[in-house]
Design a protein around this nucleic acid. Structure first.
Lengths: 140, 140
DNA sequence: CCGAAGTTTGGAATGATTTTTAATTTAAAA
DNA sequence: TTTTAAATTAAAAATCATTCCAAACTTCGG
């Protein structure tokens, strides 16, 4: 999406757009790295040296409330964020920790066993695939 | 497993068995609540008032190193622990947060899409089912 | 029992995240 | 534009889970 359109889109959602927020939106737009708050902060800091963590966290929350950013609970040490709100699954490299995306709907295959059918009503599912990314499979 | 056997089992694994550790093992044995460290601490505290968090965390680590306890990364706010090391999946009630178990192997169904096959080598998978537990589906 | 090695403890330290504060900036109406 | 209420900012302090620490204490093999 063109930058001007991205800005318009968020303005329409009631987000006051400050230079810092625009920098964060730019950073997140199309980003598939599943950055942590700290990584967003560092990424912005280069072009926006005075930005504070509070701004990053505020913006993360504002985007989450608007469904534009999803919290990813995969790394036990910190939260990661995914600017793609479309349901999808994740690949986690057990060696380097990199998180990749899997766009495929496994819902039909993921049926609960008989004995649980009456005990839990499923509304969504999420699969984590653990293993090695191509980088770590090779030499290093 | 009988208590004496549980104790023998851990002694064989090179764990010195202190009263605190025995209390933690008793608390975890057969527990399907996926407790957090704080919940383990509180559960032990009643019978073992001087226990410290450090001991709880130390024991968690010792058990994890021996494959007897699995860290469950589902709740973004804290780590939870599962004394069942057998691979399985989880139900997460979006309302009350309760975590349940699903013993079923979905591996055959969880094939990566063609374009990812050469890019990531999967060694295991884990499915989270989100929805409502029976308790939360009804009145409350 | 003795002693070495491993444990426990309470409190301090750490690290991620959230809240607070006072000052600044914004959107939008006049 | 100018105004103004509401939102945003940076910096610092607060919070919460978790880890570290040094000293005192246990366990268990011999």
């Amino acid at each position: 999406m063109a930058r001007a359109n991205v800005i318009q889109k968020y303005r329409d959602k009631g987000l006051k757009l400050t230079p810092q927020r625009i920098a964060i939106l730019d950073f997140l737009d199309g980003n598939t790295d599943h950055p942590s708050a700290e990584e967003i902060f560092s990424g912005i800091k280069q072009t926006n040296p005075t930005i504070s963590f509070a701004t990053v966290y505020n913006t993360i929350q504002a985007l989450r409330e608007r469904g534009e950013l999803v919290e990813v609970t995969i790394d036990p040490e910190r939260k990661h964020y995914d600017p793609n709100p479309e349901p999808h699954h994740h690949l986690i490299c057990s060696k380097c920790g990199k998180i990749g995306d899997v766009f495929e709907d496994f819902t039909d295959a993921l049926k609960l066993p008989q004995e649980l059918l009456g005990k839990f009503s499923v509304t969504s599912n999420h699969v984590n695939f653990y293993g090695a990314c191509i980088n770590c499979s090779k030499g290093n």
